[in-house]
Design a protein around this nucleic acid. Structure first.
Lengths: 216, 216
DNA sequence: ACTCTAACTGACCGATGAGTCAGTTAGGTG
DNA sequence: CACCTAACTGACTCATCGGTCAGTTAGAGT
């Protein structure tokens, strides 16, 4: 972990800020929030620690800036993909696809976001992301379900739970993929669709395993 | 967060060790690894920090002792429940049931284990737990599948992925449950079975969503 | 070439918290 | 009761790291 740019010095403020963010992403993603020192970030960026404070209030704010950026980007990409798609299965396909694109193209960003759950302050941001995604999924499901669902609080809770399970499953597989890069994207994608959609589809039809009666 | 026992002093070594572990569980579960100080643990146990070092080498070792204990216990309970059960769905039922029992009875232990992902060294331990559970699930699935599966490396990978998805879904819902204690256990259980088993069941039959052909 | 500002640095401070040690005392044993 | 060991403590050290400040200098503008 050494400096990434030696030749030039004296960058424009905006460029320097970006360079710092880049270095911070690397170090945070590799070490997690608590185990990264600002000296390490400075070293990685090839500058002195004091310069970081010309651009960011504190370590937390530097971290938050990165988190904001990637949470926003991930969310935007998924939403954009979901929006134009038809309802139901093509929509899930689009959403999962956009998500996997993000994980594939920005591995360190993905790692960064999910290497830092556990810290109370950070957990809030990630929880917000998760809840927004869950809400999107809930919307997706509601759109496919009979209209009386949205009114029923019991089913609303049901939907929320399924959304949690789905995001959990996808997140877990994304992390697994991160440790098995040789597995092609298509396999991951197919696995998620197999696992999730079948369950979701039958759930939407009111099917229930065992007993078969829908609780009220 | 104050001392939990004032009257007695001078406990037997083994008892004191347990008392320290109890206090440490509380503080670690509430604050996470990095944000707990040994002074806080000592305060919680009503002893001096130095005494902790009579029983544990370091902060890490104290943490590891707890992690080992609960990882082992969780694993043992799930395995024990799974063992005698028949194959297939009753087995999944038993495993998920045992898992939910653990989460319900030992909320702080559950919180402790999953409040500390992010730290590299800790993440390893949790990853080991996850992989062992995933392996158990893979075994469960293999037992239900035609024998030629176990030989096929492609399907072995498939199984591993599904195991990851399943554990991810269950873990996510468990965390959600932790923030919604009012939801009865039965609802959680049913949701998992609805979501997971349907998918797993059809997957075992070689069904695939979209296209319907099993890749090789 | 001179200037002047904004980019940049090294050397520092203060807080925090893990880990240590020289003792002090409770309470079981002979 | 006296003793002696093992439980226990207070008061320390020491390293780390976030954050600061008094400057130094590159380099654009004139």
């Amino acid at each position: 972990m050494t400096a990434v740019t030696q030749p030039r010095r004296r960058m424009a403020a905006a460029d320097r800020r970006e360079a710092i963010l880049g270095a911070a992403l690397d170090v945070f993603a590799a070490r997690g929030f608590h185990d990264t020192t600002l000296d390490a970030v400075a070293g990685r960026a090839g500058i002195s620690k004091a310069l970081i404070y010309e651009h960011f209030e504190s370590k937390r704010e530097l971290h938050r800036a990165l988190m904001e950026r990637y949470v926003r980007e991930l969310l935007a990409r998924v939403m954009e993909a979901i929006g134009p798609a038809a309802h139901g299965e093509p929509r899930l396909r689009a959403g999962v696809g956009a998500f996997l694109d993000f994980v594939e193209e920005r591995r360190d960003a993905w790692r960064f976001v999910f290497r830092n759950v556990g810290d109370p302050e950070i957990a809030d941001l990630v929880a917000r992301l998760r809840d927004e995604v869950a809400a999107a999924i809930a919307g997706l499901m509601a759109a496919d379900a009979p209209p009386e669902w949205s009114a029923d609080p019991v089913l609303a809770l049901e939907t929320e739970m399924v959304a949690q399970e789905l995001t959990g499953a996808v997140q877990a597989l994304a992390n697994w993929w991160d440790e098995h890069r040789d597995v092609p994207r298509q396999r991951i994608f197919q696995s998620i669709m197999d696992f999730a959609w079948i369950g979701l589809d039958r759930l939407a039809q009111g099917a229930r395993w065992g007993g078969g009666t829908s609780r009220t």
